[in-house]
C-alpha cells in the first residue's frame, strides 16, 4: 500500500535519505508523517505537544538516518520507534514531578483510550480491523507500545500475573498479525 506510492524502492529512498536529498525528505515526510503524527497524538493526547514531538522526531530522524541499517529492521518501524520514544519521553518529562503512574491515572489513560480515541481513528477503513481486536489485548498493546509501560508495570496496574501479561502481549500481536495478514 505505502510502497506503491513511492516512485522508487525503499532501498533507493534510504540511500537518497542518507545523502540528505531534499526530494527524498519530501517523499519521506509525505509518506509517513500522518502515521507518525497519529501515533504521537495517541501518546501525548495534546495537539500542541504533538506538533513539538513530531518536529523533534523528524530532527532526530534526519540526524540519525545515516546510521539506519535496513538489515536490522524495516524503515517504517524504525521511524515509528523514534516518534514513539520521543513522544513517551515528552510525556514523562511533562509529568515528572507529578506521578503519572498512579492507579487513577492509568484508569484515566485507559478510559481516554477506550472512549476518546476509538472514534477518533475514522480516517481509513483500517479502524474496523483495529476494533476487531479483543479489547483486553488491545489495551495491553496500547499500554506497552504507546505508553511505554514495562510488562511488570502493566501487571501491577491491571492487577494481573506477569505471566498473563506476557501471554497477552504475545497473543495480541499474533492477533494483530492475523488481522493485517500480509
Amino acid at each position: 500500500m505505502k510502497r506503491s506510492n513511492l516512485p522508487f524502492t525503499e532501498d533507493v529512498l534510504v540511500k537518497k535519505l542518507q545523502q540528505r536529498e531534499e526530494q527524498a525528505f519530501h517523499l519521506l515526510y509525505d509518506q509517513y508523517s500522518p502515521a507518525l503524527y497519529g501515533v504521537i497524538l495517541k501518546v501525548v493526547r495534546d495537539e500542541e505537544a504533538a506538533r513539538d514531538v513530531l518536529q523533534d522526531s523528524f530532527v532526530k530522524i534526519w540526524r540519525n538516518i545515516p546510521s539506519y541499517d535496513a538489515q536490522k529492521g524495516r524503515l517504517f518501524t524504525w521511524l515509528l520507534n523514534i516518534a514513539r520514544n520521543t513522544a513517551i519521553d515528552a510525556i514523562r518529562t511533562r509529568h515528572s514531578g507529578q506521578s503519572i503512574q498512579t492507579s487513577t491515572d492509568i484508569v484515566d489513560i485507559v478510559d481516554q483510550h477506550q472512549q476518546a480515541y476509538q472514534p477518533a481513528v475514522e480516517t481509513l477503513d483500517l479502524p474496523d480491523k483495529v476494533n476487531q481486536l479483543n479489547p483486553d489485548r488491545r489495551m495491553v498493546i496500547d499500554l506497552v507500545y504507546f505508553y511505554g509501560y514495562t510488562h511488570e508495570e502493566v501487571a501491577e496496574k491491571l492487577n494481573l500475573p506477569l505471566g498473563t501479561v506476557k501471554t497477552r502481549v504475545r497473543s495480541a500481536l499474533q492477533e494483530l498479525k492475523k488481522l493485517f495478514g500480509t
Binding site: Y37, F76, T77, L126, F180
Partner: peptide, 24 residues
C-alpha cells in the same frame, strides 16, 4: 510482526499541521 504494528499505526493516521513541514 513489525508490519502488523505498522498497519496499526497506519490506522491511527492523522494529518499533521501543515506548517510543521515548512519549519522542518
Amino acid at each position: 510482526l513489525s508490519a502488523a504494528v505498522e498497519q496499526y499505526a497506519q490506522a491511527l493516521r492523522r494529518d499533521p499541521p501543515t506548517d510543521i513541514k515548512e519549519w522542518l
